[in-house]
Simulated scan of single mutants.
Amino acid sequence: MDIAQRLVLIREAVGLSQKNFAAKIGRSQSTYCEYEKGKNVPERTIADICREFYVNEDWLRTGEGDMFKSKNNTNEELAFQIGKLLKTNDEFTKNLFLEYLKLPPEMKTLFEDFVHNLAKSK
């Protein structure tokens, strides 16, 4: 499997069209489409893909290891997700996060129970 095929796998794993995937890394759809067809992928593009989608660079380049970086470190994952959120215009999620942080401990517990129950109902 070559890098072009791995790009398709990443894009499918994150559930995006070529157009939306390309937009997330600051490329046009036509440019990104060429990468999936086997055109040489610039170093900057590889770095952007790995940063934006938390892709394991070794896997992208060689196919060795896991597709995505391990997100076991909660602080690292939180920092990564907050950084992504700050770059968006998603005011609802920003406000939801802020309001959650302002809740007293007993209300946070109720909210956590609600979210866990919501996840179970899927």
Results as ranks from 00 to 15, higher is better:
Ser17Arg: 00
Glu43Ser: 12
Ser30Thr: 13
Gly83Cys: 06
Arg44Ala: 12
Phe53Ala: 01
Asn72Ser: 13
Asn95Ser: 14
Ser70Met: 07
Leu96Gln: 12
Ile82Trp: 10
Cys50Pro: 03
Val41Pro: 03
Lys19Leu: 04
Cys33Glu: 05
Glu106Gly: 02
Leu9Met: 12
Trp59Arg: 02
Val115Ser: 10
Asp48Arg: 05
Lys108Asn: 11
Cys33Phe: 06
Lys71Trp: 08
Lys94Trp: 13
Leu85Thr: 11
His116Cys: 12
Ser28Glu: 10
Arg11Ile: 03
Leu96Trp: 14
His116Gln: 15
Phe21Tyr: 02
Gly26Val: 02
Lys122Trp: 13
Phe53Asn: 01
Leu103Gly: 11
Gln81Lys: 12
Ile3Leu: 09
Thr62Ala: 06
Ile10Gly: 01
Met107Leu: 14
Gln81His: 12
Glu76Met: 07
Thr62Gln: 06
Arg61Tyr: 02
Gln29Thr: 08
Ser28Gln: 07
Pro104Gly: 08
Phe80Lys: 03
Leu9Ala: 11
Gln5Asn: 08
Glu43Ile: 11
Val55Leu: 01
Met67Tyr: 08
Leu86Gly: 15
Leu96Asn: 13
Arg51Trp: 02
Glu99Phe: 09
Ile49Val: 07
Val55Gln: 00
Leu110Arg: 14
Val115Ala: 15
Lys87Phe: 03
Lys69Gly: 00
Val41His: 03
Pro104Phe: 09
Phe21Met: 05
Phe68Lys: 00
Glu99Ser: 09
Lys120Leu: 15
Met67Trp: 06
Phe80Ser: 04
Glu106His: 11
Gln5Gly: 10
Glu91Asp: 14
Ile25Asn: 05
Val55Cys: 01
Ile82Ser: 09
Asn40Ile: 06
Thr88Met: 08
Asn72Gln: 10
Ile3Lys: 07
Met67Cys: 08
Leu118Ala: 14
Leu78Phe: 15
Glu64Phe: 06
